[in-house]
């Protein structure tokens, strides 16, 4: 069985990754753009944040800068797609690919940086409360954004670009806004998570997309909510549920699963949810 300590860790990591899930929700669900930049922008945020911490900067400032850096990665993907007409999937892949080199540069060619002794957001304790405050603020902000006229415009380009254009929405600009906001969140998530675990690794972004997407669809599946304001919250809850599910799967002796089976379990979970959803749709 899981101890209380382990459950708290699930909650904390789930909440932190919930930020990335909001980002994934913005691209995959809101503007309907399959953005693969996220694996790169996550590490970018982590790298920027860890270098800032190493040089003794304020940890909140480090997180803010991670947010800005992630946003710039999104901006780049947006420009590739909108102005250079590179396919959506490919522009994300290219940017994530290039990010690897950029991230190594930022990290000073070290593939990993540890900062066990440096001051982080979590140095003073109360980590669960701090994470909860940061995540709640973001949920409120983006939940509100999506019910405004601007947010409605953002959502409309994901549903029907022709219609959006007829209604006077600048589809190109909105696509870029969506990508910037999404990757800024993912960069910030990277920046926060790296502070939480006390080190930064060049490979730690692998799977951000899949985990984020898993969170979004778990949330959608378990909590069928139509209220726009709550849909953002559901992404974060999905992320926490995902962490608890994974922890249970790995800790149960009956299944005989180990930590290295994580990606396998996550993948099977996503496939199972997606299939069950299709079955429901067919039987309607």
């Amino acid at each position: 069985m899981l101890s209380v300590q382990e459950l708290m860790t699930c909650l904390e990591v789930g909440l932190i990754y919930g930020i990335a899930a909001i980002g994934i929700y913005l691209t995959f669900r809101t503007i309907n753009f399959p953005d693969l930049t996220c694996d790169g922008s996550f590490v970018l945020g982590a790298a920027v944040s860890s270098v800032m911490l190493k040089s003794g900067q304020d940890p909140y400032m480090a997180m803010a800068l991670a947010l800005v850096a992630g946003g710039m990665a999104g901006l780049f993907t947006g420009i590739l797609n909108v102005y250079l007409k590179i396919e959506d999937l490919l522009s994300g892949i290219i940017v994530a690919f290039m990010m690897y080199s950029v991230n190594l540069r930022i990290m000073g060619t070290n593939p990993n940086i540890a900062f066990m002794d440096d001051v982080t957001i979590f140095s003073g304790g109360y980590s669960t409360i701090k994470i909860a405050i940061i995540v709640s603020a973001l949920v409120a902000l983006f939940g509100y954004l999506l019910i405004t006229d601007f947010g409605l415009g953002l959502r409309s380009i994901g549903q029907n670009k022709r219609f959006a254009s007829i209604c006077g929405i600048n589809v190109k600009a909105m696509t870029i806004v969506g990508l910037v906001a999404s990757n800024a969140l993912i960069g910030m998530c990277g920046g926060l998570f790296t502070q939480y675990q006390g080190f930064c690794d060049i490979t730690q972004g692998v799977g951000t997309l899949v985990i984020g997407l898993a969170s979004v669809i778990i949330g959608e599946k378990l909590l069928k909510i139509k209220n726009m304001l709550l849909k953002v919250l559901v992404c974060v809850l999905g992320s926490v549920i995902y962490r608890i599910f994974i922890a249970f799967a790995i800790h149960s002796d009956a299944l005989g699963l180990r930590t290295q089976d994580l990606n396998l379990i996550t993948g099977i979970l996503i496939i199972a949810i997606m299939c069950s959803r299709r079955k429901n749709a067919a039987s309607k």
Binding site: T148, D149, F163, I166, C167
Partner: peptide
């Protein structure tokens, strides 16, 4: 709501 804002600036106010 989307049609209502046609030709107007879409601001950050609830729709």
């Amino acid at each position: 709501n989307i049609a209502y804002m046609r030709g107007k600036c879409r601001k950050l106010i609830p729709s």
